[in-house]
Computed example of a mutant assay.
Amino acid sequence: MQIIRSMRALGISALLFATLASPLAAQTDWPNRTVRFVVPSNAGGSPDRVTRLLAERLSKRWGQPTIVENKAGATSIIGTDFVAKSPADGYTLLSTFTSFVQVPALFKRVPYDTERDLVAVTQTVAVDVLFLVRADSPYKTLQDFVAAAKTAKPPLSYGSFGNGSSFHIYGEKLAQSMGIDLTHVPYKGELPSTSDLLGGQLSSSFASVGTALPFLKEGRLRPLGVASTKRSPVVPNVPTLAELGVNMPDVVGWFGVLAPAGTPAHVIQKVAADIREILTQPDVVQTLRDQGLEPIASSPEAFQSRLQGDLAQWKKLLPEVGITPAE
């Protein structure tokens, strides 16, 4: 009888241990398969390059394949919607950029709820952006460009990575501040617009420093200004558009990682912590800064706060430059 009671007690103890251990095991076995980062723009641009750098190092850290998929289009909506509707298990993450907070102000109908369907993981970097022309262009300065634009027929053009994107806003602010007409040409990413600028299909274009830098070094592009109120440490001799008289918005471009709402908190914290560790590695810091990208590696809470502030700011800013929400 004593033996039976002892066996029952042992069985209950084992069951209790298993019950208590299950949540712990669930928190320590992620990831146990491939993790996918979705980038809502074309391959080759700065968001893609940063994501691939992180994915390579996270794969080694996690001991699991970590892949990058590009799902470009509709000012980042296509890729964002894919992640918003993915299982909230941490295996599909969104590596996005400033368009994420501009979309709700740009479109009346979006297939996901920006504030409810995705949660912040970390802001990875802050981004410097350049206003560019071809190196063989007659425009040596922004003043040259503006003088030509005042009489150009048809109007001079500029490229951006999509309607309502930050590059689009910068172009409209430039036109508005200088009293000129410019034709906006939207693309699915900054690399296609940069390629068309190099090919002579555009008069000018905006691009992040990281995307533009190889062409600056080759002498194929000329920067006329930094789309900011502060100069870039990568090209310190290039004036800001604000210095040159453009009423630039006080916003900073960023890249960051989000996850589907409902993703376990311990997964969110792990991804944020592991990315933070990578972004503080000296060689990574130098690589990013050489591309005009400043490592940030914020906490999920800090990034969530930034997203909320940016959402409100862009809803106010878009109407100021005459961009109204599309259907």
Rank of each mutant, 00 (worst) to 15 (best):
F167P: 02
L156M: 04
Q291S: 10
E320H: 03
N42V: 12
E320R: 05
L191T: 11
Q286K: 08
L279I: 06
P186D: 15
A297Q: 01
P239D: 03
E320D: 14
A212W: 01
P154K: 11
S203R: 05
E115P: 07
G200T: 07
T183F: 08
D117N: 10
A261F: 05
N237Y: 08
R289A: 04
G179E: 10
S177T: 07
V238Y: 05
T141K: 05
L293K: 00
G179S: 13
P23T: 08
V246K: 02
M1I: 12
Q281R: 08
G164A: 14
A227G: 11
S59F: 05
R33L: 07
A297T: 06
L106S: 15
T151Y: 04
V38H: 00
S299R: 01
S41M: 13
T229R: 06
G162H: 02
I169M: 14
R109G: 08
D136T: 02
F107K: 11
A26C: 03
S22N: 09
E115G: 14
E301S: 13
G200R: 02
Y170L: 14
T183H: 10
F161L: 13
P319V: 04
L221K: 02
T96C: 07
N163T: 15
L197T: 11
T211R: 05
T34I: 08
D113M: 10
P300C: 00
Y158R: 13
T92P: 00
S177N: 07
S160Y: 04
S203M: 08
T287K: 04
P282Q: 04
S177G: 13
D144C: 14
Q304Y: 01
G164H: 02
P239G: 04
G225D: 08
S228F: 00
I4R: 10
T98S: 14
G245C: 04
V39Y: 01
Q304W: 00
Q313K: 06
G179P: 15
V257R: 03
V35M: 05
Y158F: 15
T28Q: 09
S137T: 00
S305I: 12
T229P: 02
I169F: 10
I323W: 05
V235Y: 07
A227R: 03
R52N: 11
A259E: 12
I323C: 12
S46E: 12
T124I: 12
L198C: 09
T183M: 15
P192R: 04
L307C: 04
L202G: 00
A72M: 09
Y139T: 15
L213G: 08
I278G: 04
E320Q: 14
A265E: 09
P186L: 10
N163V: 14
A88C: 09
V251S: 11
F17V: 14
D310H: 05
F206N: 01
R289H: 02
D81R: 02
A312Q: 15
A326Y: 10
